[in-house]
Amino acid sequence: MKVLYFAWLREKIGTAEEDLPLPPGVTDVQGLLDWLRARGGGHAEALADPNLVRVAVNQTYVGADHPLGDGDEVALFPPVTGG
């Protein structure tokens, strides 16, 4: 799957995009967030506060229980500030 990061999440994690195989045991968004956090470093820091992380799968907002598949584009970003 493709994982994209934006704004300060991207800066803390240090990359805009990574290609990952769906990690073993991960079936939904919550599972992926836990797995990424467990990698430590910038990932753990960027994802520390779940209230500040929005998730889109295939460019549509989803909740933590949304199922994930290997071909998905997952985007993680802070609350938006456009307009």
Partner: peptide, 14 residues
């Protein structure tokens, strides 16, 4: 439109 755009469209200001 402007109210919803501000809270939903994926833009970030630096």
């Amino acid at each position: 439109l402007i109210d919803w755009l501000k809270t939903k469209a994926p833009f970030w200001k630096l």
